[in-house]
Amino acid sequence: MRTLDQLIAASPTFRGLADEYLALIAGCAVNERIDAGAELFHEGDPAERFYLIRKGSLALELQVPGRGRVIIETLHAGDVAGWSWLFEPHRWQFDARALEPTALVAFDGTCLRGKCESDHELGYELMRRFAGTLTERLQAARLRLLDVYGHGRGD
């Protein structure tokens, strides 16, 4: 049975973080589980938490008038879900729904923001890691924007 520190350290996002920082972060975290189909968060609601997926998967969705519910992206084991705790206005930008029974580590964003303020070293280490993942997501989003599988025009 692993401790929270160990679970967090095992993820690609937090790998290599110094033990003292792991302990600090773990201090802001709790284990959570949700059932398949359950909603984790809702677009527009206050976003004071973020999640690390340990097992299972989440669908990030938007309600698009005329198209219904559209899945924008799915997140899987090892992925972090949620950026809105970092920046104003701290509100969720998407809906999130579990596609299967999912185990998560839930982080208190307000708590962690405070710790980053007092310890800029910790702040830098976290921002560096999140920036890396954000870049990857942005790249993927841009790739989908190209709609490469779309129609060609002619032979």
Binding site: S57, R67, I71, I72, T74, L99, A140, L143, R144
Partner: peptide, 23 residues
Amino acid sequence: VTVDSAGPEWLGPVGVVPGLIRR
């Protein structure tokens, strides 16, 4: 199998192929 976007009846990954490669 992944798709660029899907409706809620799709139970698989939504995202790009490089994401599948990584995982």
